[in-house]
């Protein structure tokens, strides 16, 4: 396995040298393996948004460097521009960036900017629309006639159609209802399986990222607080609550059970895992 993203000692200070100076990202280093699903967690103002806008070169670091596939994205102008297409970024509430007359044209905007041929663009748009779970019938509709959830999917398809090696989602499910959340997350999971893309996902919902991500990166005040598998991170569940982050509901429950003296693993975060442990404990009791 090789690292596809390397973040090296990244710093970003806004409005440096003015009274509004604000350090958003403070010496962050980590790397992401090819094909990995990384969950990014932190409360508002922890530097998540600033960090992800560095990965595709939208923001220029005030210190440190970003390497994609071993090469600095700031090497020259072409590399910087190429970074936009190598790391696709889906912003929060991406539906507000739709602008074309038809869904097709909107999804084609990215691929067109890449200078692809008409035939290639068409193919990519069709593939993208499939990944986000929309019917091809919407392609000729105006994006503004769609429902909120459909608009979001079209906007995501617009980034997927660039077929980036890395795709970054900033709170993809914000504002959706539970059914919408669940099906969108399922689409993202299926997309990653099919394309082997590297996925980064920012989320406030620990329950969501915990089941999807291979590893979690927890940010606090612009620094890396924790980095590891969900299991490793939730070992420090108490620390998470200290820095104002909610732990998954099951983890919270198991922390409390541990306090009550029941020998459970507090790093548990799925219902099925929890059930297995509890039934085992109960069974153990019954046998004794």
């Amino acid at each position: 396995m090789s690292a596809i993203i390397e973040v090296k000692d990244l710093c970003h200070t806004y409005s440096a040298g003015t009274p509004f100076e604000h350090v958003a990202v403070d010496h962050i280093s980590f790397s992401v393996e090819k094909g990995e699903f990384l969950g990014l967690i932190g409360h508002t103002g922890s530097g998540k948004s600033t960090l992800i806008q560095h990965l595709n070169g939208l923001l220029q670091p005030t210190g440190g460097d970003i390497l994609l596939g071993g090469e600095s994205i700031w090497k020259d102008k072409q590399t910087t521009r190429a970074a936009r297409f190598r790391a696709g970024l889906v912003f929060q509430y991406p539906e507000y960036q739709l602008f074309e007359e038809t869904v097709f044209k909107d999804i084609a905007f990215g691929p067109k900017n890449m200078g692809l041929s008409e035939a290639e663009i068409r193919e990519r748009v069709l593939r993208a629309i499939g990944f986000v779970g929309l019917d091809e019938a919407v392609l000729e509709k105006s994006p503004f006639d769609l429902s909120g959830g459909q608009k979001r999917r079209v906007a995501i398809a617009g980034v997927i159609a660039m077929e980036p090696e890395i795709i970054i989602f900033d709170e993809p499910t914000a504002g959706l209802d539970p059914a919408g959340c669940a099906s969108l997350l399922e689409n993202i999971r299926a997309y990653q399986k099919a394309t082997q893309a590297t996925v980064l996902m920012v989320s406030h919902s620990m329950d969501d990222v915990a089941v999807l991500a291979d590893r979690l990166l927890v940010l606090n005040h612009g620094r890396v607080e924790m980095l590891g598998t969900p299991n490793e991170v939730f070992q420090n569940a108490t620390r998470l609550t200290e820095i104002g982050l909610a732990v998954p509901q099951i983890t919270a429950l198991f922390l409390r059970l541990q306090e009550l003296g029941i020998p459970v693993d507090p790093a548990t975060y799925t219902v099925s895992d929890a059930m297995r442990q509890l039934l085992l404990l109960k069974g153990g009791k019954a046998d004794a």
Partner: peptide
């Protein structure tokens, strides 16, 4: 603020 966000989002799709 919104304009800033839209510009960034379109740049992320390769707008020049």
């Amino acid at each position: 603020e919104e304009t800033d966000k839209i510009i960034s989002a379109q740049k992320a799709r390769g707008a020049d």
